[in-house]
Design a protein around this nucleic acid. Structure first.
Length: 527
RNA sequence: CGGAGCAUGGCGCAGCCUGGUAGCGCGCUGGUUUUGGGUACCAGAGGUCGCAGGUUCGAAUCCUGCUGCUCCGACCA
């Protein structure tokens, strides 16, 4: 019985052009019944502050299992072989000629990526693991801030972009394609138009606000000159999110919330990313900050008070549903001078005490914007406010360069021997080096560690190949696992294995059980 | 898009100027050796010299066109 009306509704939506379907919406069946699951009362939806509570209450029926974030393109690697003899890790002894900067060279040498065309890369297993770890942190921090994941397509109809006027404005950087019916499509460089279209199709009341939707999807910008490996590719993976709010103040609260969630996201990746006032570019809007990781190879010149690099969010709990608390954190992180060359102000910079005045270079790893009604107005994304007036929704957008981060992290964390992964994004939690492959006691000890670490929820990479010790060490150093367990007959006679920190180079001998325990503790601190 | 350069086994390169049918190192395969920081030796496999045309008895090499990639600049997450 329920199936018949649904089918009718489907037909109605399919046959009408989008604008008619939209005009028809007031008579459409209540959408809440369609988007919510059976266990939830549609009437429970209310303003943001209350939604937090309502969501928590209905979690058992509404919330997907925690691991649902990892399906599809983000599928976990769990279960894949993690012993080197059965893995695919094509490391290179020599550096390919095309790589100029250190992260690009190391990613190629460590077998993380392979270039397929200018600015377009395959992600080999090791690189793919890093990419997924980065994605996972982004997802977790978005969820923590109350933002909701969806997935929009890579290809978009040109008509949507004609509505906003950006189809012509965007220029050569946008990759345009034509399908067999001669319809104009484009490979999305960003998604403001599409998300606005989704919003206007389904939301019409301030009671459904605030709302922040995001996705992590491949984008394409046809850069004139791609370079620096994945740091400036043409195809790139990006988290982009969009907030919808009833007025400017609420939208600025969302802006601040994003700033804090981004700070936490970068910190978890082992990065110090400084929010800097920025120029808005083709997205538009006045209120915008870029997040920059300091690195000599950065593409932007940055001017800053060096005390900003000491600011840390750490483990402090920030209540994302309390705009004042969120704003206070933002002020803490933005009151010291920090700007890119685009917005640099010599006079203001001169007021920074000379001892703290620093000029350097930075890699941009994210940007947040408030742009008000720039898209909602031309595209008719309206909501009825509490006073009963139809007003354009206030929006902002926010991006994190996911694939670029893989390169940026390496730029910020490497030495002459190779990569040094921060614990938060490492492709494997530790390496196991078997110094005497084929020796039954050594093999058994390694197998024991391999199993015990996995039982603790860790993912070790076990080098069970016939290589010499030197070659195994060199490979481990190159691929940058933060911890290494070295197992050989000499140590086993004393009942110990060796745990080495990649970053400091320090080693410590301990029993296998103690080493497993220790690694478990180290990674427990990075959850 | 303006300027410059490169394209030769999987990777890094030599050979081209002065045309005679391809070589080195690493890697790979088999063997011996070695085994706590890229071991040594022996024997092998692997190349339409980016593509198309031209000159020539003969082209990796000289000429023309094309394609791809890289670097500098303007542009960008």
């Amino acid at each position: 019985m329920a199936a018949i009306p649904r089918r009718k509704a489907d037909r109605r939506y399919r046959q009408r052009p989008p604008d008619l379907a939209r005009r028809h919406r007031p008579h459409a069946p209540p959408r809440k019944a369609r988007i919510c699951c059976r266990g939830c009362s549609p009437r429970r939806r209310t303003r943001w502050a209350a939604i937090g509570t309502a969501r928590a209450q209905r979690r058992p029926s509404c919330s997907p299992p925690a691991n649902r974030l990892e399906v599809g393109a983000n599928a976990p690697c769990q279960g894949e072989p993690m012993r080197l003899s059965r893995y695919f890790l094509p490391v290179l002894k020599e550096t390919p000629a095309e790589a100029q900067i250190v992260s690009h060279r190391l990613m190629l040498r460590a077998g993380m990526i392979k270039q397929q065309a200018a600015g377009i890369y395959s992600w080999l297993p090791l690189g793919f693991r890093v990419l997924r770890r980065i994605e996972q942190i982004v997802h977790e921090e978005q969820a923590r801030a109350g933002h909701i994941a969806l997935l929009m397509p890579t290809l978009q109809p040109a008509d949507l972009w004609r509505e906003s006027g950006r189809y012509d404005a965007y220029g050569q950087e946008m990759l345009r394609v034509t399908d067999r019916h001669k319809r104009d499509l484009l490979y999305g460089p960003t998604n403001e138009e599409m998300i606005t279209d989704i919003f206007r199709s389904h939301v019409s009341s301030y009671r459904d606000l605030p709302l922040t939707l995001y996705h992590i999807q491949w984008k394409f910008r046809d850069e004139i000159r791609p370079r620096f490996g994945v740091m400036r590719g043409r195809e790139f993976l990006m988290k982009d999110g969009y907030n919808f709010d009833v007025d400017k103040q609420a939208a600025l609260d969302a802006y601040n919330r994003h700033m804090v969630s981004y700070l936490r996201t970068y910190e978890r990746m082992g990065l110090t990313a400084i929010p800097m006032r920025a120029a808005s570019g083709p997205i538009g809007g006045d209120n915008t900050h870029e997040f920059l990781v300091l690195a000599q190879t950065g593409e932007s010149e940055v001017f800053y008070d060096d005390r900003v690099t000491g600011l840390k969010l750490g483990n402090r709990a920030v209540d994302y549903y309390n705009p004042e608390a969120v704003k206070a954190v933002c002020e803490e992180f933005t009151s010291l001078y920090a700007r890119t060359d685009e917005t640099h102000d010599e006079a203001a910079f001169a007021e920074v005490p000379e001892a703290h005045r620093k000029v350097g270079r930075g890699i941009e790893v994210g940007q947040i914007f408030y742009f008000g009604t720039k898209y909602s107005e031309p595209m008719g994304a309206m909501v009825v406010n509490a006073e009963g007036e139809r007003v354009p929704v206030h929006m902002g957008s926010h991006g994190i360069g996911v694939s670029r981060l893989a390169g940026a992290i390496i730029e910020a964390s490497h030495d002459e021997r190779g990569i040094i992964w921060p614990e938060g994004v490492t492709p494997f939690h530790c390496g196991i080096v078997n110094l005497r492959q084929g020796d039954s006691a050594t093999d058994a000890a390694c197998e024991g560690l391999y199993a015990a670490l996995q039982a603790r929820g860790l993912e070790p990479l076990y080098d069970d190949t016939q290589e010499r010790a030197g070659a195994k060490f060199a490979t481990m150093d190159l691929i940058g696992l933060p911890w290494r367990l070295t197992v050989g007959p000499r140590g086993l006679q004393k009942g110990v294995v060796e745990l080495t920190c990649r970053r400091s180079g320090e080693s410590e001998e301990m029993s296998a059980e103690a080493a497993v325990e220790r690694l478990g503790e180290i990674y427990a601190a990075h959850r």
